[in-house]
């Protein structure tokens, strides 16, 4: 019995207000994979996420999510937006924010129920957010907020988890904690993860596949197969070098010293972590 892939794209083009943002996407992502979605600013990473959520529609081609047409299985996808608006006065506690993940789209208000409380509490425990469950969300740090957003996205036990640049406001240590948390939960619940990041290095230890986006096109495969000069040069449409230094990967234009991707580890003098791919 074959299991449907988590996400299957067949010659998908996306045109937004006259511009082709994504072209000829053609790949499938297996259930349970941890996929790093990597690409420079404006490559179309967020657009890809919105496409999978069914918030925008392909101008041609077809997408199937968990074997269903897009949009049908929305409740089986958990989504972690980059951040959320909250000032310190916002009368919303961490647990209330997480609770919106359970039933925030339903009309009316949530009647207090013990099983509801319990599910929220379990999820707060799981992401390590119990200590600030009663704090107003506006007073929490970037890393704490990110944990709450992950808890919110996971409350309905989704099969797919989409995270749009969850590391963008975090320092290296909190970033690493978030990656570990997502990896652990994904394994224990067999969740397929698409983790958007502009730098692939922090993800090297956990991702099975990279979805590399540039110029509106995508290549999907193992890091060893995809992050190669020939493959990326074709994707970027210009010569690209790939440097592997101390277990880290640096992608740069051949005629320039400016890297396409940030290289925070080296820039901050962090020791590099060994990568299984190298």
């Amino acid at each position: 019995m074959s299991v449907e892939p988590a996400i299957a794209m067949d010659q998908v083009d996306v045109v937004l207000s006259g511009h082709t943002i994504l072209r000829a996407l053609d790949f499938s992502i297996a259930r349970g994979a941890f996929v790093g979605v990597i690409g420079p600013n404006g490559a179309g990473k967020t657009t890809l996420i919105r496409l999978i959520l069914g918030l925008i529609h392909p101008s041609s081609g077809t997408i199937r999510v968990l074997g269903m047409p897009v949009g049908k299985g929305r409740r089986r996808i958990g989504y972690v937006p980059q951040s959320f608006a909250a000032d310190p006065d916002l009368p919303l506690r961490a647990k209330d924010l997480v609770g919106l993940g359970l039933d925030g789209e339903r009309w009316g208000f949530a009647l207090p129920s013990r099983s509801r409380q319990q599910r929220i509490q379990e999820m707060l425990d799981r992401v390590g957010a119990s200590a600030y469950a009663n704090e107003p969300v506006g007073t929490l740090s970037g890393g704490e907020r990110q944990r709450l957003l992950i808890a919110q996205a996971l409350l309905t036990n989704p099969d797919i988890l989409l995270l749009d640049e969850p590391l963008s406001n975090l320092d290296i240590r909190s970033g690493r904690e978030i990656i570990e948390l997502v990896d652990e939960i994904a394994r224990e619940r067999q969740v397929t993860v698409l983790f958007v990041a502009h730098d692939m290095n922090p993800l090297l230890a956990v991702m099975n596949e990279v979805l590399y986006l540039a110029q509106g096109r995508a290549v999907v495969g193992s890091v060893d197969d995809v992050v190669q000069p020939e493959v990326l040069s074709r994707l970027y449409g210009q010569p690209v070098d790939v440097l592997r230094v101390h277990g880290r990967i640096l992608v740069i234009a051949s005629d320039s010293v400016v890297p396409f991707t940030h290289f925070e580890g080296v820039a901050h003098g962090q020791p590099s972590s060994p990568s299984p791919h190298l």
């Binding site: 409740r75 959320f84 608006a85 924010l97 919106l100 925030g104 789209e105 009309w107 208000f109 957003l149």
Partner: peptide, 23 residues
């Protein structure tokens, strides 16, 4: 307001999260 309560709150905090849940 009673009818809109949860979706209104969710979309006030994050339009993206609200949209992704079909609000």
């Amino acid at each position: 307001i009673g009818f809109l309560y949860r979706p209104l709150l969710l979309s006030s905090v994050s339009v993206d999260a609200a949209q992704s849940r079909g609000v």
